[in-house]
């Protein structure tokens, strides 16, 4: 049990407070721990604070990479099965 943090989208910013949407649930979140944050950014929210901006590009790339490996293997598996037939 340590540190439940949830990704959410920054909707708007007012000083040190941002309204963040976490799967349809909105809350005012303190952004003082971040140097810079903009509406549209995804941040990691823990106990009402934004801890870090989530690197969406990095997230997408790693997912893509994983899915690519997965697809490759799937094709290979399907291919070898067909050969077997």
């Amino acid at each position: 049990m340590m540190c439940l943090a949830v990704p959410g989208e920054v909707l708007d910013i007012d000083g040190s407070i941002a309204m963040v949407d976490m799967a349809g649930v909105k809350r005012r979140v303190c952004i003082d721990l971040l140097a810079e944050v903009h509406p549209g950014d995804y941040v990691l929210v823990h106990v009402g604070f934004a801890l870090q901006i989530i690197d969406e590009q990095e997230a997408q790339e790693t997912l893509k990479l994983l899915r690519a490996c997965f697809q490759e293997d799937l094709h290979a598996a399907v291919g070898s099965q067909q050969e077997g037939d």
């Binding site: 003082d32 721990l33 971040l34 140097a35 990691l44 801890l51 870090q52 989530i54 690197d55 969406e56 990095e58 997230a59 790693t62």
Partner: peptide, 16 residues
């Protein structure tokens, strides 16, 4: 967990 973790973390938070 590269989408949220960097080598040096969050310097502002560490300053606090």
């Amino acid at each position: 967990y590269s989408r949220a973790v960097t080598k040096y973390g969050n310097p502002r938070a560490l300053d606090v």
